[in-house]
Design a protein around this nucleic acid. Structure first.
Length: 266
DNA sequence: CTCCCGCATC
DNA sequence: GATGCGGGAG
């Protein structure tokens, strides 16, 4: 795309270097030719104070309303990985018992790697999505074989595993390694879209939302901030019947004046 | 974009 | 009984 046939509808915009070094220093945005000059304004204006207000309110909300989840009481990247892969497919309350059972049986990458994959799948049962325990097992094998049993922490290394995509890589980096890495799952997508964009389909704004998710992280607080985003989306800014009345973002939310009490924004 | 696949929701 | 959900892979 970059360097291809010039399309007047494509403008290049410099963005923060969360993917610096990958050669993707620019984000491509599709606009209509007539509006290309104004298109820059389509990106939500994020003033310093708006950003700060969002950060403070979210962290304050999290301190009061955050959930106490098992994978928040560990610093072991292996435990974090297991929880993330389970959470890719299943709701929190179904994951919790299986998370404990799984770690009980396979306490480390070494234990998991040495186990026969069939047995791992049996332990996984009845969570379903049986390709995922296979991939988790293969991640364990590779981690032992290529990384000395320690999960790597760079995005590039994490993305090289089958079963780890951009979201899970960000979750691992922030939750297991305390890095200020962005995450964007459907919860976070919904929250950021409602608060900062409000118009159109969240999925269409994915790249903007990734950039938002990154720039919003308070320096050094990636762990708390991302956990807070997840909890906020899961329990307050829910997909159906969001709790707008007590929501701390009410006064800055682009969706709120029109979206309160509605199932969907607009 | 489609498929995966098991559950929640309607 | 049908539909929606949801990261990742292809």
């Amino acid at each position: 795309m970059i360097g291809g046939a010039p399309d007047p509808r494509l403008i290049l915009q410099e963005r923060a270097p969360y993917n610096a070094g990958t050669g993707l220093r620019f984000m491509i945005r599709r606009t209509t030719p007539a509006r290309s000059r104004k298109a820059v304004n389509r990106r939500p204006k994020l003033t310093r104070s708006l950003k700060r207000r969002f950060q403070l309110r979210l962290l304050k909300w999290y301190a009061a309303n955050g959930r106490d989840l098992p994978w928040r009481n560990t610093a072991d990247p292996y435990h974090i990985l297991v929880s993330e892969v389970m959470l890719q497919q299943t709701q929190v309350d179904r994951v919790i018992p299986k998370y404990h059972e799984f770690l009980d049986r396979y306490p480390s990458f070494q234990h998991l790697a040495e186990a026969p994959v069939g047995e791992v799948k049996t332990t996984w049962y009845p969570l379903g999505y049986n390709i995922r325990p296979e991939r988790l097992h293969s991640i364990a094998c590779e981690t032992v074989a290529r990384y000395g049993g320690k999960l790597p922490s760079t995005e590039e290394d994490l993305l090289s595993f089958k079963g780890i995509g951009r979201y899970t890589a960000g979750a691992i980096r922030s939750f297991a390694f305390n890095e200020d890495a962005p995450i964007l799952d459907t919860n976070v997508m919904r929250v950021l879209h409602r608060v900062f964009i409000a118009k159109g389909d969240p999925k269409a704004s994915k790249s903007i939302l990734w950039a938002l998710s990154e720039t919003l992280i308070p320096k050094g607080r990636g762990y708390d901030f991302n956990q807070a985003l997840m909890d906020f989306g899961a329990t307050c800014c829910t997909s159906r019947n969001p709790s707008c009345r007590p929501c701390p973002m009410k006064s800055i939310c682009k969706t709120y004046p029109f979206g309160a009490g509605r199932t969907k924004p607009l």
